[in-house]
Amino acid sequence: MTGVELLIWVRGPGLQLSLAAFILGMTYRILQTYFLGRAKNLAEPRGSPWIHGMKTMWWRSFFHPGMTIRGYFTIISGYTFHLGFIITLLFFDQHIELFKSWTGLSWPALPPLVITVTAVLGIAALVAVLVDRFADPVRYLLSDYQDYLCWVLTVLPLVTGLLLVYKIWLPYTSLLVVHIISFEILLVAIPFTKLSHVFTIFIARWYNGAIAGYKGVQS
């Protein structure tokens, strides 16, 4: 298969299959989690579980003082990576064209220089958390292969994207193929690894908030 044939495949069937695997996997995971069910709470509700669930889902995305009890490193590196990755994914004009081809929706893009900064910050934060994972003996012992796999799958689209935009190392066609493949592998992996937290974190937050709301306490 030549480079051009590979590009046609990754932009066509490759993208279709990976997106289908992502949608199928996430639907499966969410419904499977939902059908686990919970024991019926027979106590009288002291507040609205729905409202508290939604509030918690929103507010836990933001910084609050209690989060720094174990230091600032995880907080800063975590925010930097997640914001860097999300901004790069959602506000680079060429990515918006992809979402537009899928949904028909588009929105304003950020300048390429800003996207370069967010991508570089995202990569830097990922490197920092990896170093910390090795340096901290407790975290190192708790890590398994999936942690490293997820790290690689997450950093690859950022690195290959930067190489592509600045056309470093390989011809544009090859870099585009590598970048799209790295994204497609990430899409397929998300539902079946710890990366499924891109969705399940919101379910977990809602549930924590709903329990607290039912009891009439702050989550």
């Binding site: 932009r11 279709q16 639907t27 499966y28 992809l98």
Partner: peptide, 22 residues
């Protein structure tokens, strides 16, 4: 940067299959 094949039908099938499996 856009895909060259439609995803609507396949996405629908994926939702149904995922929902059935879940």
């Amino acid at each position: 940067s856009a895909g060259i094949a439609g995803v609507g039908t396949l996405a629908g099938v994926a939702v149904v299959a995922g929902a059935a499996a879940g």
